[in-house]
Design a protein around this nucleic acid. Sequence first.
DNA 1: CTGTTAGCGCGTTCAT
DNA 2: ATGAACGCGCTAACAG
Lengths: 333, 333
Amino acid sequence: MSANVTIADVAERAGVSQASVSRVLNGKASVDPEIVKQVRRAVAELGYTPSLAARSLVRGRNQTVAMVVPDLGNPLFQGILKGVSVAAAADGYRVLVADTDEHVDDEEATALEARQRCDAVVLCAPRLPDDRLRALVARLEPVVVVNRRLDGAAVPQVGIDYARGVRELVDHLVGLEHRRIAVLAGPAQSASNAERLRGIAEAEAADPGLDIRVLPCGSRLDDGFAAADAVEAERADGATAVIAYNDLVALGLLAALRQRGVDVPGDLSVAGFDDIPLAAFGTPPLTTLSVPRAELGAQVWSRLRGLIGGASDEHELLFQPRLEARASTAARS
Amino acid sequence: MSANVTIADVAERAGVSQASVSRVLNGKASVDPEIVKQVRRAVAELGYTPSLAARSLVRGRNQTVAMVVPDLGNPLFQGILKGVSVAAAADGYRVLVADTDEHVDDEEATALEARQRCDAVVLCAPRLPDDRLRALVARLEPVVVVNRRLDGAAVPQVGIDYARGVRELVDHLVGLEHRRIAVLAGPAQSASNAERLRGIAEAEAADPGLDIRVLPCGSRLDDGFAAADAVEAERADGATAVIAYNDLVALGLLAALRQRGVDVPGDLSVAGFDDIPLAAFGTPPLTTLSVPRAELGAQVWSRLRGLIGGASDEHELLFQPRLEARASTAARS
DNA sequence: CTGTTAGCGCGTTCAT
DNA sequence: ATGAACGCGCTAACAG
């Protein structure tokens, strides 16, 4: 039905010109009420639907934006995607996902290719080196950079204040009498990892009584699971708490520790980051830093829409994570 | 740069006709090697990129497919999305996500709208009544239906054999001496829930010694958490094992049970469905039925590609879930 | 307020 | 093998 019906068919059926049909469809100029009625009727009878392809060609717009992520398996990006997705949908936009599958070197090509199909892009590229990212962003143009700060680029950025969050977490732990803390670091090139580490360094500098050791780890469940040996070594060495790169890592660690008979938080306190849905249902429920993923996604869309509309915006929006103290952290015994 | 360079610019620069440029770009007809060289050079110098909008208009194709899901937060759909996404990417296709956010009544409109933007659609609509789904599918045409069977529609379907899987699970439990089993049902209108229930009924019919009670529940973490009271009542009544609708529900239940001091699997065995990444890291590790989400996604793409290419295919592909016996189920004590 | 005309950028006949 | 011309379906000038 609606398949091959064109605006010409509607025009003919309604006995008017294509232009008039176009006008009533887009509500541009004012049209004689009688014609409007005719057109609407013809549209309904024919089951006409405008060709988005043709519309895209002439308008130079798709009503589609791309979201480039390193890994859709990461709950953080899932949440942001969902947030962007529903916010964009409310404005008649759809989102195309491009998962680079952690292949940093494909990121530029993927993003560029995605941009071609869309009016703008939401870029999550935590691993891409600064200079390459800056260059990329310039070619992507209507773009908002998510979850990493980028100086010297006239592009809106929305992210999470990891440094401040992690300091809050350290304070929480210190309040519970912990002094020797192990930190499970994320992927080495990850920007948000660097931010966390910066926060750690600041916390250490502010409180000389602190002894924090950073252990290389990763960003996924199994990374956390595999870090158990190293964590145990730290514990033998006096560590009483660990801050994991994110909740996935924390949950993986929790599983490995339980398997080893280590009691959390009795023997060791563990904290994560992100407050993924499962965090509250962990064993024990995980202390973590909550970030409003959906809200963040909505803000991303809001900025993107502005850019698409021709606005310029190079502000940075930093969400403050909120400490969610749960049972996995407790006073040092 | 590459922005407003058109094929005409390339043609002029190369001193040939647009048609020739088009030919070398698409490798359609054979072209003089010399011209090929000229064109390639011009393309490179100008940084020309074909307009996908124009191409879409003339070809009637997007190189984009839509995936409609009820909830992106569900790990099952995430996995399938990823599978479809990478498989499609290998063929130069991208995928558009349309999350209906569990609003069954928007499903048709959303799917139709998505279809307009794309060459085909992957439809996950577990709640839509059969007749509406059949009607919808006809209008979506190149479409593959995921995770639910649909009789009387000439459309490929790929899903999971929930009925058989759940019987396998029951067998597993029976092998562990369980006879009184509670089942936490999923959303009432969910097709895959019905399949599971069918499996349960078959298992019961085959083994008169079995006593299985179905409890209404849901599909999410908190549904499982909230079901703890009902489960405890069943346990008081003699139930020694529970089969949850999916892993999320099982994990939620596990958390609630732990909170109540119920030992799993000592006091009660618990099993889930889907084998989401976190299942193996649960406390205790969750016995579940593993479904190859990525592989399933790849198969979905393979079928979809066939349809786009004009093939017809109305076969049903049913993946057999594999039992993943872990610590959450044990012999009745 | 309406219809006519001219593109948007590309693929594709149809001659040559 | 190549180029000229047309059309995909729509919107936006421009007249009237």
